[in-house]
Design a protein around this nucleic acid. Structure first.
Lengths: 250, 250
DNA sequence: AAATCAAACTGATTTAGATCAACTCAGCGT
DNA sequence: ACGCTGAGTTGATCTAAATCAGTTTGATTT
């Protein structure tokens, strides 16, 4: 019977280690709060390709928009080319996070997405997701939530860039990464930054020198320890206070 | 008969001056590219309240998210309160444009929306829109397009704030407003800015003094004429060149 | 292990825009 | 017709971050 077949597949969802059901990321990702039937449908639609190498593009600006992506392991930056032809980093994505909504408006990507290290992603073909959305209201609600998160993240960055000092911007990025790692039950105090100083400074609207000096200052002030990309947050409390206060310098 | 009733209502869509069908904005707004039946359903759902006065809030940060809004006439700013308690303007919305997606992620508004002048809006109750989305694929596609536009606009602003000078930022805002007015078949060279210098400078991550000086510089350089909020763009070409070039000063 | 090269750090100097301080001007109420 | 208020402009000064100019480190090649 067809019905038996479906049931057997639903069972697979429970045992297949690469299914959404068993994915370590599922609490953040697209499958959150879906019921088994919905999860099964989603699982059917997701493509799990081979990993991307560091610096490899997942999609490029101008590409036809066909999918959104969830980071499974590794990390990704998205960037666009602005009016004067320079790259502008618009986001960093860690495991469990979704990227690729930038093609929604006109079916072409405006961003380029690049793996920052060896990275595997789940590809969710947008056309399929659209079908799922229109037949399964909880999926619709969840997709809108994810898109909403992207909007809120972008607006948070706007506020950061418009009104905060170099120290505040870097502190904010470090605390954001820390909090996002915590959500994945990873250490929020010791971690390795997947991106270069150049990528950080570009994202924060600063120069590499300023970012480098900010790291040195934070270390001197005892807020953290840096060794290249290795970070240990020592006094998170004071970093947080930096964000709200006009900054008591040196 | 019920069917006759429906037909009669569809007819009303054609004659009722406040229906989406007859709205001057409909080429930009949510009703674009919808077929008569879909348009009719949308029309049924939209609330058209009495206009808001200047400075009046349409929704406030923390409000339960229940609707998105289309500007019918007038204009709106959205802003949020950032970490250190100061206001940060995140967007300006002109006739035909949609705002209010900031509540999508968690059903609470993160922004406050305020009328910049006497403004009338169409309110689209989100729950109803959600129903419409799940029963009418073209509506779904259109809603995703609109949300995508918001994401792209936010990312464009990120790039502007991260990498552009004061002159470039102001030029970019003026050209953006000009282009958006043109879409409404309004003059793209002579217009009245609905927002104050303070709101412009906040949005662009600058001070009022810097914005004021930039206006004066543009006028001296013959790019435009300013009289308080009245703007006449004289040399749009050169303003555009400002955005791409490292800026040939004075 | 010497040579090459890029990323990151640090110091000296410059500068765009912030800050501080007047001043102008258009309402607006009395 | 009067000051009063707040938005906007302009000028003088200050400063955070950019720019310019090395230096250090570490990875990769030979």
């Amino acid at each position: 019977m067809i019905k038996d077949d479906v049931l057997k597949n639903i069972e697979n969802v429970y045992t297949n280690p690469s299914s959404c059901r068993n994915c370590r990321m599922n609490s953040l990702c697209i499958s959150t709060s879906l019921r088994p039937e919905e999860l099964y449908k989603l699982d059917q639609v997701i493509k799990r390709g081979s990993p991307f190498q560091a610096q490899q593009a997942i999609f490029k600006s101008g590409d036809k928009y066909s999918s959104v992506y969830a980071v499974r392991s590794g990390s990704v930056k998205t960037s666009c080319i602005d009016a004067d032809g320079r790259e502008q980093v618009t986001g960093f994505y860690l495991p469990g996070e979704i990227f690729g909504w930038d093609g929604l408006a006109d079916n072409f990507h405006h961003n380029t997405a690049v793996a920052l290290e060896t990275t595997s992603v789940c590809e969710i073909p947008y056309h399929q997701l659209e079908l799922l959305v229109s037949t399964t209201p909880p999926v619709n609600r969840h997709v809108m939530k994810l898109v909403g998160k992207e909007i809120n993240a972008d607006q948070k960055l706007i506020a950061l860039l418009a009104a905060n000092s170099a120290h505040q911007r870097l502190a904010s990025l470090l605390l954001s990464i820390s909090a996002r790692l915590a959500q994945q039950k990873l250490s929020s105090t010791r971690f390795r930054l997947p991106m270069s100083r150049g990528e950080i400074s570009n994202y924060l609207g600063l120069t590499v020198e300023t970012v480098s000096r900010a790291f040195s200052y934070f270390q001197r002030a005892g807020y953290l320890k840096v060794n290249k990309k290795e970070i240990e947050l020592i006094d998170k409390r004071r970093l947080e206070r930096l964000l709200t206060n006009p900054e008591e310098c040196d």
